[in-house]
Amino acid sequence: MDESRVAGYRNFATKLWNAARFAQSNGIGGSHSISAPKAELAVNRWIIGEVVETVEKLNKAFAEFRFDGMADAIYHFVWDQFCDWYLELIKPAFIDGEKQDMDEESRVVAGWVLDQMLVMLHPFMPFVTEELWHALADPEQPRRYDLIHAKWPEPKADVDASATAEIDWLIRLVGEVRTAKNELGIAPGAKMDAFVRDASPATLERMANQKAVIARLARLENIGAGNAPEGGSIQLVVDEATFVLPLAGVIDLDAERARITKAIEAATKEAASLSGRLSNASFVEKAKPEAVEKARADHAEKAAEAERLTAALARLG
């Protein structure tokens, strides 16, 4: 048994526990309905659709006796969709408090999703989920039954294609900005401007809808249409649109180009050295299997690093 996998699942339990604590601290409690609540906001329609798809994956895997597939589906939903993205996307609704109806809708939907998660997770981790099931209940209306007696999720909802497309676009945009900043050594919290060109009406509408979230998660304060000022910039292509982030005053462009070029040369040289070793039949035949496997993994890592850095250099424009 790999101890690192045990540590990973411990981290997963911690992630779930922290998500429940965030919920409690923001007035999010258990749901009173097995059916999905009504939602107007794209982010809430999106997460309801993700629940629908996750339940379908679980049911299919269960019918095929693929319990590993069931565990994988719920694991990634909880970690990736709910914890890493959904909670981050709805935080402004609680922090800013601009619209009370927005707050209430997100609280209701988040509480319902949490309940569905706990039910789906219960067969795999019964003790933590049972504890959280009761902890999330309204103190004045405790759960009438234990989680083991809860009905299996039946969302009775459809996947909203438009909401899915909008939130997937938002996640890709934020992810691209964060990756580019990381590759160029720019602090994640550094606020930048952006200019977008070739954006379709649908993209412009999404930008308007998600303006506050983009500013908070991608740290893009001002996004305007048209040409960016002259000088170095980050260029990101998301669907049909190109987002240009000027770098003047943010980093030393010449120094950054030199740093990345040097790193590309080092990664390429190491990848070539590992490739030569792996193409040596004597090494592959005589070395220990774990040594050969490590060399292959290292080669793949260095090759990917060189490719990633080359893309970062190209982004500087």
Score class of each variant (00 low, 15 high):
A61Y: 10
F62G: 03
Y145N: 01
I90D: 00
F243G: 02
K211L: 06
M102H: 14
T203C: 09
D138V: 12
I260E: 04
A300E: 03
R144A: 02
P139S: 04
A165R: 15
L170S: 04
A163D: 10
E130N: 01
K211W: 01
I34V: 12
F195K: 12
I95G: 09
I74D: 06
T179G: 01
S33V: 00
P188L: 12
E105P: 08
I171D: 01
E230K: 15
L16V: 15
E131Y: 15
F195S: 05
A61S: 12
L309M: 04
D103V: 06
I234G: 10
K191E: 15
K151A: 11
A314G: 12
I148V: 15
E105R: 15
A287F: 01
A208P: 00
L173W: 12
Y9P: 00
G29T: 08
A73P: 00
D252H: 06
T268V: 05
R178I: 04
L236Q: 08
W152V: 00
I148K: 10
A281E: 06
K211R: 15
S282E: 14
L309W: 12
E3R: 01
A163N: 02
E154P: 04
Q210N: 05
G232W: 10
T14N: 02
V43N: 02
I95P: 00
G232C: 10
A202Q: 11
A73E: 04
L87P: 05
R296C: 01
E256Q: 14
R257P: 07
A295W: 01
A61C: 12
I90H: 14
C83F: 08
D298A: 15
L147D: 01
Y145D: 06
E293M: 12
A297K: 12
T268Q: 11
H32M: 06
N227S: 14
I186C: 02
K156I: 02
H76Q: 13
E265C: 02
K288P: 05
A314E: 15
P126Q: 02
F94T: 00
A272T: 06
H122Y: 11
E131Q: 01
V55S: 04
D239H: 07
K286W: 08
L217W: 07
R315W: 11
A271C: 03
A297P: 02
E230G: 07
R296F: 07
V43Q: 07
L87G: 01
F77R: 09
L173K: 11
I171K: 15
E53P: 03
A150K: 08
A199C: 11
Y145I: 04
E154R: 14
A263E: 11
L316T: 04
L121Q: 03
A225T: 14
S233E: 10
E230Q: 10
A297I: 09
E40F: 05
P139I: 06
A306Q: 11
H149L: 11
